[in-house]
């Protein structure tokens, strides 16, 4: 009768904190709703320190590693010369690939919902923001109309997938593009609309793209009526809903993505305006900070 069989309490597939209970969630959200005060003392729109390392990969033309909270993302920009597409002869090409290192892509259990976004999701959002919505001015990548253009490859590697992986990835892409050096070319005209390009021997003969207008992405989570940026894991689990917003310095919203945070309380339509307002001013703020720092770097 005394059934002492324990189902082998192995702790090997344990995550750091498997989840938090209702009481903890209540305590967390009370502080945010009543006082706008998070558990670590931040206000709703405060980021943790963003650390950007420029030029970490010597073989890429531009690279940046961004560490934000528990997320760590490396973006590299690489160049090659291509023939532009028929429909857009005066535009360059942009390719984005997203990869994550082994430990982050591992899924212990299929039933368990993976916290945060998958690589595919990150890739899809980044592509929408930077390639399809014209986040990066592709006309700047044109060399000879209809014949030669730059193709810009962004390889994004997620070292650690924290909660703010989107924010970190967008900052990394922006910083990598800032770091990228486009060599100056001399175009040699040939017959039959064919042309050749010639590189200069001088490694310091390059131009850099103006990234002021390149958008940044902010992911916001909603707890009660309050929007939070750069959430912690606990806050993420408490959140009612989350959105990803991209905006550039002119307050243009490029992308919005709403996903339910697992709570029954979703995302109301009437807060949309407030959200857009908040996020675009936030993105603007990040943009101007980043540009100021990049200029002095």
């Amino acid at each position: 009768m005394a059934d002492w069989k324990l189902e082998e309490p192995e702790a090997e597939d344990r995550e750091d904190d498997a989840g938090i209970n209702e009481n903890e969630k209540k305590f967390l959200s009370d502080g945010i709703i009543d006082h706008d005060y998070r558990l670590d003392g931040r206000g709703p729109l405060d980021y943790r320190t963003v650390r950007i390392e420029l030029g970490v990969v010597s073989s890429a033309t531009g690279s940046a590693k961004v560490t934000l909270g528990s997320s760590s993302v490396l973006a590299t920009a690489k160049l090659s010369i291509r023939t532009p597409g028929k429909i857009t002869p005066d535009e360059g090409l942009i390719e984005i690939s997203v990869d994550s290192s082994l430990p982050t892509s591992r899924r212990d259990n299929d039933d368990e919902e993976d916290m945060g976004m998958s690589e595919d999701e990150v890739k899809q959002i980044l592509e929408s923001v930077y390639r399809e919505s014209g986040g990066i001015d592709k006309r700047r990548l044109c060399i000879v109309k209809g014949s030669k253009c730059w193709e810009l490859f962004f390889d994004v590697i997620i070292f650690e997938k924290g909660t703010s992986v989107m924010d970190a990835a967008s900052l990394a892409i922006k910083a990598a593009l800032f770091d990228a050096k486009f060599p100056n070319l001399t175009v040699l005209e040939e017959e039959f609309d064919q042309c050749e390009v010639e590189f200069t021997d001088d490694p310091f003969d390059f131009w850099q793209m103006d990234v002021t207008r390149v958008p940044t992405i902010a992911s916001l989570h909603k707890i009660g009526p309050v929007f939070l940026v750069d959430v912690t894991k606990e806050e993420m689990m408490t959140a009612d809903a989350s959105v990803v917003v991209a905006a550039d310095i002119n307050r243009t919203i490029y992308y919005q993505n709403t996903e339910c945070g697992g709570s029954e309380c979703g995302f109301e339509l009437n807060v949309l305006e407030e959200l857009v307002e908040t996020s675009s001013s936030l993105c603007q703020e990040i943009n101007s900070r980043l540009m100021k720092l990049l200029a002095s770097a």
Binding site: V50, I52, G55
Partner: peptide
């Protein structure tokens, strides 16, 4: 609401010779 606290640190690891 006061301005959000955004603290960014930039480290340039780039070596002077930019060649690989």
């Amino acid at each position: 609401m006061d301005l959000p606290q955004i603290n960014i640190e930039i480290v340039a690891v780039r070596t002077p010779d930019s060649g690989g």
